[in-house]
Design a protein around this nucleic acid. Structure first.
Lengths: 118, 118
DNA sequence: TCCATGTTTCCAAGTATATTGAAATAAATA
DNA sequence: TATTTATTTCAATATACTTGGAAACATGGA
């Protein structure tokens, strides 16, 4: 019998919820661009033109979704992307939300997601 | 007035919003499993245990997000996944929300974080 | 200690989304 | 036409999310 949904679906749902908001997608993309060193909360707020409390709220949501990690450096709180998180989401979507339709569309060799690089 | 965020981001946001809801993710996964022939709205509602109007609302959201397509067959409205849609989202996330240090499907064993160029 | 700076929490107001019964629409069939 | 079946739209309510000022908290330095 069904004991509720599997853990990964709940996780994916939380990540999707975290990313499906304009300011949060902005923040996340900014941090992807910023690389592993991340950015301080204040710098993020400035870049995204958000008041500090609003930005803090969104950062918390992203962190709760496992998409960001943070650490303190002096007075600053440094946020950076959690690569594992976003990859987890990508894997979930690829596995559960994509048919591997090697049969009825573009021919691609392996059963993996297309690398999309050129 | 809004400064233009690129079209693909607006699209991605709408898709993320469509998928980030429990019932809708349920519906979408059901339709992925069901393959290209899709399912009638009534069958979807039954499978997902949703009242018809609720289900119809979610189907409309998914369709608006470009994740489903539908066509009428007799009295039934047949919904099926729009493969292009979900691929578009996957491509967007891969391109804008993942750093391209491409050892994705790594063996997730001991080392949590792989050493990045620090 | 006090003060300045960076960030978060609290809280209230505003906005958006989800839920469904009832009514409306659409198609097949007699 | 009227009836049955399939689905959607309407409308009202309920729930959840977003926003940002004020206050609180955390840290480093004089």
């Amino acid at each position: 019998m069904e004991m509720g949904r599997d853990y990964s679906t709940a996780e994916a749902l939380e990540m999707l919820g975290a990313l499906s908001q304009e300011s949060r997608l902005d923040i996340f993309r900014l941090l992807v661009q910023s690389g592993p060193d991340g950015l301080a909360a204040g710098a993020i707020a400035r870049h995204c033109q958000l008041p500090a409390p609003t930005c803090s709220f969104h950062l918390k949501e992203l962190k709760k979704g496992g998409l960001l990690k943070c650490s303190r450096r002096g007075r600053s709180q440094i946020y950076s992307v959690n690569l594992q998180g976003i990859r987890h989401l990508l894997d979930y979507l690829t596995e559960h939300c994509c048919t591997d339709d090697s049969d009825h569309e573009a021919p691609s060799g392996a059963g993996e997601r297309k690398p999309e690089a050129a």
